[in-house]
Nucleic acid binder design. Structure first.
Lengths: 340, 340
DNA sequence: CTGAAAGCGCTAACAT
DNA sequence: ATGTTAGCGCTTTCAG
């Protein structure tokens, strides 16, 4: 049951390692290896269930057939779903995925990237935290395929898949305004990431058009629910006059709903609610929550397609492309003005 | 900017590769290498930022510092949360995680395992699908550390972290009975996995004690919501006389809630609801849904602790251990009998 | 105490 | 058309 190597095969079949290697890599014809030999080798390989050692292959070729997928938090349903879809497509194309959560932590992300480089991963899919520009540039300079998604970085030109954040929040805020809400708060993580800034801008833009006053609450980024609910609760208690609230991410939105339930605020009669990132919690909530749905499948699809393209063509001459996808505003009862 | 190797260092410093290697691996003392040499080498390594090539290390040593984590579906919040926690602990201990979703598909799982073996992963954490006994046995026979969790396999003795499924559903069903519900349905994925069987058994046991009739609906395992909601809807429409329903997993529970909302069944007045696997959706639902909360952190903690133990001690003499954790029944409004 | 050298399993340039 | 051989970068045995 010893592991069998290419040398064993060569010896057994009285051919050379090269011949076997060529046959293995489908270059038999190209190298004009005798059909009879090819068949003999293939049969033998089949019989003993030989599989090349990918480690040795990687060491030799510098390729690993591994794609690194770096997201903010793999337990966030948005990223988990995308990861799932990307994983499937990647496996089907002979690539494996290594994921990890960056926690939006620059240092951790830096470590992770350098680890991936050492392991010779073939490509990167990254939802980049702030301050990681240098490492990404260096990756690109080294001709590594890099696809950014969910957000972009200043002065980094590489393949990118994003949604139209500004329009999404603009549109949702307009919806609230059209429903007749006037004091609309926006609660979000404080962040300088591109998507967060764009979302905030969309909110501001819509308010400005109607000359409404913004009510903004920014919360330090955190995974811990308690550190999110507490500031939200404090903010809502301080601003009793609000008639609508817009949550900037699914996590903030979920925590926000907990707070509302907790302090007994009725939706939408006391306070209308809209959130970014649609998912089960919003759909099932009573009343169901109006939410901006990102096209998760399209994002995953585009990301992996672009990356596989780069990987296969190895044509570094294709200029990098930015794909901006549209979102859907799923209007539900939480944002309906109750006529009185 | 060329990648520097151990040979470069040796040449540059006029020492041998061996010496450098020993110093790198902290075996300088053991090998009585001159303190002056050690310092010179370490300083140089520091300066040029040398990092050993892990691929070459793996090829040579057969170790990869990679742990494979195989779950049913990484986008399921239960598994995503566990993955997240395991990932953190693993990174802190110098291990990387490769996850993948098995989809409960035996063939896919088999492929995945053989791929991991080729890549020389150091250990496995698996929520095993049915029919994978042979591969797991083979792994164990090859002295690979394997920790199973969430469910176990017949005749496989290896480290295991599970919850007390039978008692959990028994207890929750008892709760419904004590509330005064009599026609209690159990809706679940049809499956012969150990945890699913135990859950079903707990339900039956509680009913039998009270001599109540069971109402069982089993749905083929599937990720697609529509293929879950449809059978649930059909079942509920056919059995109008039920007064409570118990969902066997978070996914079934979530889909079940959608159906209830859809066809306008009031919870708990028309139908009480309990589900396995607590999470946001249940907490935030109106009314909040009574659910069995698995101790996610404890599961992750135990899994990784047990595995790291195996990895470090390399003592195959420690007999394998089964850890059975308790769950919490979070009683909420969805299972309260409305006095009339 | 240090160094030479043999591999781990594979690929590919270079013979033949 | 097929074989020889030199590495990829590292660890480790064995000699000095």
């Amino acid at each position: 049951m010893k592991k069998i190597s290419i040398a064993d095969i060569a010896r057994e079949l009285h051919v050379s390692k090269t011949t076997v290697s060529f046959i293995l890599n489908g270059r038999a014809e190209e190298k004009r290896i005798g059909r009879e030999v090819v068949e003999r080798v293939q049969k033998f390989i089949e019989e003993v269930g030989y599989r090349p050692n990918p480690l040795a292959q990687s060491l030799r070729t510098g390729k690993s057939n591994i794609i690194a997928l770096m997201v903010e938090d793999i337990s966030n349903p948005f990223f988990a779903s995308i990861a799932r879809l990307i994983e499937d497509r990647a496996y089907k194309n002979g690539y494996k995925i290594i994921y990890c959560s960056t926690d939006n932590d620059t240092v951790k992300t830096r470590d992770l990237i350098s680890m991936f480089r050492e392991r010779h991963v073939d490509g990167y899919i990254i939802a980049p935290p702030e301050g990681i520009e240098e490492e990404i540039s260096s990756l690109i300079k080294a001709k590594m395929p890099v696809v950014l998604f969910d957000r972009h970085l200043q002065n980094i030109s590489t393949d990118l898949v994003e949604i139209d954040n500004l329009f999404s929040t603009y549109n949702a805020t307009r919806h609230l305004i059209q429903q007749g809400f006037k004091k609309i708060a926006y609660i979000t993580f404080s962040s300088n990431q591109s998507q967060m800034l764009a979302r905030l801008e969309g909110y501001h833009k819509a308010l400005e058009e109607s000359a409404y006053k913004p009510f903004l609450k920014e919360i330090p980024f955190n995974q811990n629910d308690d550190l999110i609910t507490a500031p939200i609760a404090a903010f809502l208690k301080k601003n009793k006059n609000l008639d609508a609230v817009f949550f900037g991410t699914n996590h903030v939105g979920t925590c926000g709903l907990m707070v509302l339930t907790d302090i007994g605020i009725k939706v939408p009669s006391d306070l209308a609610v809209v959130s970014f990132d649609d998912y089960n919690v919003f759909k099932l909530h009573s009343p169901p929550v109006t939410a901006i749905a990102q096209p998760i499948e399209a994002i995953a699809d585009n990301v992996i397609t672009v990356l596989l393209n780069r990987l296969n063509t190895s044509s570094q001459h294709i200029s990098s492309q930015s794909i901006i996808l549209k979102t859907d505003l799923n209007i539900r009862a939480s944002s309906k003005m109750i006529k009185s």
